[in-house]
Amino acid sequence: MSTINELQYHLAEKLLMKLYEQELVSQEEYNQISKLNRQKFTPLLGPLMCDKP
């Protein structure tokens, strides 16, 4: 696995969390996008992460 993928995953999740905190995405949207991020970037810890913020 690429270190770049890991970094991109964490940056995408950080941005997603900010969108969620500002109520620009719903809980359901957050979960769906987070799942897509794990599929796209295949982070090392992705399978261990919870679908809820």
Rank of each mutant, 00 (worst) to 15 (best):
E28M: 05
S2K: 09
N37Q: 05
M17Q: 12
D51M: 03
D51I: 02
Y9L: 00
M17A: 15
L48R: 07
N37S: 06
A12Q: 04
E6M: 09
Q39H: 03
E13S: 06
L36W: 13
E21V: 03
T3Y: 12
T42V: 07
M1K: 11
L24D: 11
K18T: 12
L11Q: 10
K18Q: 15
P53M: 01
D51C: 04
Q22Y: 07
I33D: 00
E13F: 01
C50A: 07
K14Q: 10
C50G: 05
Q39W: 02
R38V: 02
V25R: 03
Q22C: 06
L15H: 04
N31D: 12
L16C: 04
T42W: 00
A12G: 02
E13M: 07
M17H: 10
P53K: 05
I33G: 00
P43A: 07
C50D: 10
S26T: 15
V25I: 13
Y20I: 04
K18P: 00
M1G: 15
Q27V: 10
S2V: 01
T3A: 13
E13G: 01
H10C: 04
L15S: 05
N5H: 12
K40C: 04
E29Q: 12
N37W: 01
L15M: 07
L11H: 04
K14N: 08
M17R: 15
Q8D: 14
Q8M: 15
S34A: 13
K14P: 00
L36F: 10
K35M: 09
L19R: 10
L16R: 03
R38N: 05
R38Y: 01
T3L: 14
K52N: 08
E13L: 06
T3V: 13
L24C: 08
M1T: 12
Y9Q: 02
Q39D: 06
L44P: 00
L15W: 02
I4C: 05
E28K: 12
E28S: 08
Y20G: 01
P47R: 10
S2Y: 05
E21S: 09
N31H: 06
N5T: 08
L48Q: 09
F41S: 01
P47T: 09
M17I: 13
S34L: 12
S34T: 01
Q22W: 07
Q39V: 05
E23Y: 07
E29W: 01
Q32A: 13
T42S: 13
E21W: 06
Q8T: 05
L15Q: 08
N37E: 03
L48Y: 11
Q27T: 11
S2E: 09
Q27I: 08
P53I: 01
R38S: 07
K14L: 11
Y30D: 04
I4V: 14
V25S: 05
Y30G: 03
